[in-house]
Amino acid sequence: MNFKNSKLLILGIILVMLLTACGGGNSNNNENSESSSGNKSSKEKTIDMAQINWAENIAATNMWKVILENRGYDVKFHSLNMGVIMKALEKNDGKELDVTLEVWLPVQDKQYYEKYKDDVFFAETTWYDKAKVGLVVPSYMKKVDSITDLKKYREKFEGKINGFESGAGTMLVTEDMIKEYGLNYELVPSSTPAMLGALKEAIDNKEPIVVPLWKPHRAFANMDLKFLKDPKKTYGEVEKIHFAAREGFNKEFPEVAKWMKNWQMDDQSIGTLMSYVNKAEEPIEGARKWVKENQDLINKWVGSKKESDSSK
């Protein structure tokens, strides 16, 4: 091969390489263009949702899983306690957690709100505004009507308040309550199922027991209970339940954030939902049944599925 032909061959190879490189660049630009146009990847359609082992939380999280997955999202649950939830939301990286459905204010979760309000989005709107928290005893304990009565009957209760998960806002408030009322009691942490099991066993045997509890809760439908009067109002009066999310969630999932801000439930709706979820073999089955029967209410929050699809 002469020098001239060799030179032409080399130039041809270089030209092919340049064209190939340009073609790859165009491919990347197309991918970036598609991404920036709003077409979300499967990861971007995934919502990581906190779940707490409380009856109303299990019901609400499964309800939203059904609603969101019907509209093309994937919802992953993360079973955590309140302290871990707030820390995960504070990280604001979307890798661990996007949203939690249950923050009780103004009292129960006040400590978490004060600590994280600058780094976590707390919705101003509420989805339930008639919540109540306090110490509860079986109704057959006729002489125990107030927290102040616990001093007199300390021996009956063995100086013990049966609690649930440590770190929960209500557990922190209960620790404050013990100090404010000067009670010589121990708050014994466990789990919500264990606490409810101990409550049921005590009632079956007509024994004394005192636990921190809240409404809405299916326990009040299944057991004859009463709240103890709280003269110092340590537990507050009416509590309201908000959702909270990591900063940036509202921009990345604007329609979901809008739907959750529209979300409102009353005693009838949350009570029926909890009942369906509790009776079903799997919570998601009970939630699906409730969602199917309450489309008019759900459409008030999120619009019809046709409206949701057309907005994407």
Rank of each mutant, 00 (worst) to 15 (best):
F3Q: 15
L9W: 08
N28V: 15
N29R: 13
E31Q: 14
S35P: 12
S35K: 13
S42Y: 11
S42V: 15
K45E: 09
D48Y: 09
Q51I: 13
I58P: 03
E69L: 00
N70T: 04
N70L: 07
D74C: 14
V84S: 13
M86W: 12
E90N: 11
E90G: 00
D93G: 01
L97P: 04
V99S: 08
E102G: 12
V103A: 03
W104L: 08
V107G: 08
F122N: 09
T126M: 07
V144D: 11
I147D: 03
T148S: 14
R154A: 10
E158N: 10
K160Q: 03
I161Y: 02
G163E: 01
G163P: 07
M171T: 00
L172I: 09
G182V: 07
L183N: 05
L187F: 02
V188T: 11
T192V: 15
T192M: 13
L196Q: 13
N205E: 14
H217D: 15
D230R: 01
A244I: 09
A245K: 05
A245E: 01
E247N: 10
F249V: 11
E252D: 14
P254D: 07
K258Y: 03
M260R: 07
K261A: 04
K261V: 03
W263H: 06
V277P: 08
E282N: 14
G286E: 02
R288S: 11
K292A: 15
N294E: 06
Q295V: 11
L297F: 02
I298K: 01
K300I: 07
S304Y: 08
K305N: 14
K305W: 02
K306S: 12
D309P: 05
